[in-house]
Amino acid sequence: MKEELLVTARGNELIDPSLHIWTWEVAMYLFLGGLTAGVMVFAALMTVLNKDEEAPFAAKRLALLAPLVLSAGMTTLFLDLEHKLFVYRFYTSFQITSPMSWGAWILVVIYPISIMQILSTFRSGYGFFAGFADRMTIGREILDFCERYRRQIAMVAIPFATALGIYTGILLSAFGARPFWNSGVLGPLFLVSGMSTAAALVALIARHHSEKALFTRIDLGLIVVEIALVALFLINLATGTGQQIDALQSVLGGPYTLVFWVLFVGIGLLIPLLLETLEITGVSKKLAMLAPILVLFGGYALRQIMLDAGQESSWTHYDTQYNSELLERLHEENP
């Protein structure tokens, strides 16, 4: 028998009995960040590929969602900070080795690109609102400018949005200290998942049947790729260090097995895969609305499960001699 036991009580908040520093706020941020990336990429792609006709929603109106979704994500991220007044400290330095610092600065670039992306199709997509802008000279000039460079803006948006999508994965995989995250597949996986959720979103809210169909097909392809990446991720851990192999157990029999395989793989990937296949092949369209909803749900589930399982994975494995719940008595008025 081997015992590794903490013999002094430890109930450090967020750390014990296992690391649980980040909860839904960060998962939501990662999800919304990925969605933003997908939204921008598709909006840009439709421009670059001249798909105004086939995909009018994606080409002209989708871009507007990016800053809204991203801002919602930033809000949840802000909620996670423990020292909120000091949020501005992200922008008083640039730490070249910290993906989080990169992320903070990428956002600074993403916002203006995204705004320009919106403006470049504002008149065609949101004519009513554009009318207000057109009443001012400056507004008119800006809209003219963006329209003129619509293609160029889209070309710039694609790499930056892709970077944003990959970043949401790298953010986690950079933590060598968390064996579960320590895989190069996480970046591509999160990017593809983000794009898949964006495709699903379009399929869900686009009005034209042909556009819905197009994005259903795109999503189907992305889901297939995502499944491949998930497999790669698992293989990656399974063939990794001892710590990674240990960490993998959390989804292979460990506490996250059920949520990973049922919620994420089953409900988030395989069922939509099936439904979308049925839809495209024309066998059944009854559940057409359901597939994209499940994809969006799967996208969030992926972030939450990765976040939870990854935090708990660790280099240290100590049992505790004490029930650290007893320490709560220190904070109770009348324990």
């Binding site: 109930g11 908040e13 009995p17 649980h20 904070h331």
Partner: peptide
């Protein structure tokens, strides 16, 4: 199960600290 309960308790303890503006300002220095 157990872990959940503990988190609940400890975050309850920290919630007090977070919502209290005095404490947040106290942490500035």
């Amino acid at each position: 199960m157990k872990r959940r309960e503990f988190i609940k308790l400890s975050s309850a303890a920290s919630a007090g600290a977070v919502v209290s503006p005095a404490l947040m300002l106290g942490g500035c220095v």
